[in-house]
Amino acid sequence: MNKKLNCIMLVDDNPDDNFYHERVITRSNAADIVIPKESASDALEYLRSQKNNHNTHPDLIFLDINMPGMNGWDFLMEYTKLDKKLQSRAVIVMLTTSENPDDKMKARALNIAADFKTKPLTKEMLEKIIIKHFKQTIPDQIILP
């Protein structure tokens, strides 16, 4: 039996993107729990509140860059201030519409985000991320949305 992730968090101010990406994750059977957050500050507050709850702490966080208020870069700076145990539990993937090479270079330079991908999230992209960062495969019965 192939193992899947326990929890994936989506941080994106666009509810349509969150809905679509949650659907890709659910239909791919890639995680037991998907937690969509429409702001970076809500996502950080959730992470802080889940400090001792291992079941609902994300294994993987998909983070948008361009959001009102606190953007993805601000989120990463605040994320580094969280308890180190919390940080070590999650892989962060920047998932954005930006194809700006400066954004990719900035993400690499910060060395916080593990990967940088362009929206939309696809089944194939999700598979590659899980294999690359979690050294496992997701189940074969994947259905496209």
Score class of each variant (00 low, 15 high):
M1W: 06
M1R: 07
K4V: 07
L5C: 10
N6C: 09
M9E: 00
D12P: 03
D16T: 14
D17P: 03
N18H: 09
N18V: 12
F19A: 13
Y20A: 15
H21L: 00
E22W: 04
R23E: 11
V24W: 01
R27F: 14
R27I: 11
K37I: 10
K37P: 08
A40G: 01
Q50I: 07
N53T: 03
N53L: 03
T56I: 06
P58E: 03
G69Y: 02
W73K: 00
Y79M: 08
T80W: 00
K81D: 09
K81T: 09
L82S: 06
L82H: 10
K84G: 04
L86Y: 02
S88Y: 09
S88P: 05
S88W: 11
I92K: 02
T96M: 05
T97W: 07
T97H: 07
S98A: 15
P101G: 07
D103P: 08
M105V: 10
A109S: 02
L110Q: 05
N111H: 14
A113H: 02
D115Q: 02
K117W: 01
K117F: 01
T118G: 07
L126M: 06
E127A: 14
K128I: 07
K128G: 08
I131H: 13
H133I: 02
F134Y: 04
F134C: 07
T137D: 15
I138G: 15
I143K: 15
P145W: 08
